[in-house]
Design a protein around this nucleic acid. Structure first.
Length: 420
DNA sequence: CTTCCACGGGAACACTGGGGTG
DNA sequence: CACCCCAGTGTTCCCGTGGAAG
């Protein structure tokens, strides 16, 4: 291989037979024509929205369900159908999909909506209400039905109460057009923090998507596998294993699909023409470690340094701890280390208030475990422990150039500094 | 009943990157 | 051009609060 020109290697790889016929159908973003085990949900959603084609205003809808229960797939699928039928019947019907995890401010949401109607809105600069009226006027410029899908709507509620309020009652200001909102959330409790007026108008109808069980997941995988692979590419138990593993995690179809796709990719890379159970097991740990790595390398410098401090503490106490147990650290300890390290690499230290917040973020990302405990006379703190082996995290962190000066920091001298 | 340490909400601030207007 | 307005981000400052150990 070493002596072969790269061009030839590429040629060879391209010509070698692939077990895949169509890899993309295994991605969770792919929406098939038929969604197994979601007939009820499709029908329910369609029933609510179809009144728009009779000239009435459809209710606003909230859709709940854990990740990978088909919320987005069902909604976009129904949206497409609605647009098609509307077009056939001469009723202009627009379905706008907005992912609030990406479009996460009021301004950006309104600007994106307005741009869908050909308005030119600058990225920033205008007052929000001006963007709102641009959008409103664009919508009301003719008779039409507009369905706005707000995916991950819970991400918006923190900073976007106002926009939800105005959108939810936009209909009363429209003369010709009709607007319906479809909010999608995986947090069942998110309306609790909402202004009651918004809550009632947004949640006129509510749909809850139950998680898939293992059999249903297997059906979904079977459907996709037929499109994705050539004959005989899958070993006997591969699908049921993927389904079982994903079912264990609240019936997440996205996870099941990822498992199947990555298993197949691993098998292919190892030169095999079929996927086996072993590939699935390997894929499982691979997906998780890829996720962790992705999260860690994209962390802002301050969080990296904080995490670096946590790994150092973990490693330093490693020799003292029982083989099974993790090192448990408190906020105070971690903060002291962090501050010391800031001095070493010439970085402004953040306040403890802020660090508490960063720790919580690391917790939500699943990098560390942090729970608040009340130790009575000894006050309140977070008990922090690493979720992934310290050495592993450590190796990823020192690839950051700004953390390089800390590389030579040896464990023993560190322990000495701590007085251990 | 006190005491202790940090949690976490809220206001306020500094800055950035973009308006529009005279 | 100078100038002020606006949204958004990341941060600091201030502070009331929890709840078991002492």
């Amino acid at each position: 291989m070493r002596n072969t020109p790269i061009a030839e290697v590429i040629e060879g790889l391209l010509e070698s037979k692939s077990m895949f016929r169509n890899r993309d159908v295994l991605r969770s973003t792919y929406v098939p024509d038929y969604l197994p085990h979601r007939d009820r949900e499709v029908e329910a959603l369609l029933k609510i929205l179809v009144v728009a084609l009779r000239g009435d205003t459809p209710s606003n809808i909230l859709i709940y369900g854990k990740t990978g229960t088909g919320k987005t797939a069902v909604t976009t699928h129904v949206g497409d159908e609605l647009e098609k039928v509307g077009g056939k019947r001469g009723i202009p019907c627009r379905v706008l999909y907005m992912n609030c995890e990406v479009i996460d401010t009021q301004y950006r949401l309104l600007a994106n909506l307005a741009r869908n109607f050909g308005k030119r809105i600058p990225m920033t600069g205008w007052p929000t209400d001006q963007v709102y009226s641009e959008f409103r006027n664009a919508v009301d410029s003719k008779e039409q039905v507009v369905v706005i899908i707000l995916d991950e709507i819970d991400k918006l509620t923190k900073k976007g109460d106002d926009v939800l309020y105005s959108l939810s009652r936009i209909n009363s200001t429209l003369k010709r057009a009709k607007v319906s909102l479809v909010g999608i959330s995986n947090d069942l409790t998110f309306t609790e923090f909402l202004d009651p007026r918004i809550r009632s108008s947004l949640g006129e109808e509510e749909l809850v998507f139950p998680p898939y069980n293992a059999d249903q997941l297997a059906d979904i995988l079977q459907q996709r596998a037929e499109m994705a692979f050539g004959n005989g590419a899958l070993g006997g138990d591969v699908i049921s294993l993927c389904a079982a593993l994903a079912a264990r995690e609240h019936g997440d179809a996205r996870k099941a699909l990822d498992l199947l796709r990555v298993s197949a990719e691993l098998a292919e890379r190892s030169g095999s023409m079929s996927v086996h159970e072993a590939n699935v097991r390997k894929a499982q740990s691979r997906i998780e470690s890829d996720r962790v790595e992705e999260v860690i390398v994209t962390l802002p410098t301050q969080s990296k340094l904080l995490l670096y401090g946590i790994t150092m503490l973990d490693r330093a106490t490693g020799s003292l701890r029982k083989p099974s147990g993790r090192t448990i650290m408190s906020t105070g300890e971690v903060y002291r280390i962090y501050k010391r390290m800031c001095g070493m690499i010439d970085l402004d230290a953040l306040t403890q208030r802020r660090i508490t917040e960063l720790i919580s973020e690391l917790d939500m990302l699943g990098i560390v475990n942090a729970t608040v405990v009340n130790r009575g006379r000894y006050g309140m703190t977070k008990e922090i422990s690493l979720e992934t082996p310290a050495d592993h995290v450590h190796d990823m962190l020192i690839t950051d150039t700004r953390l390089q000066p800390l590389m030579d920091l040896k464990l023993d001298s560190f322990q000495a500094q701590l007085g251990m």
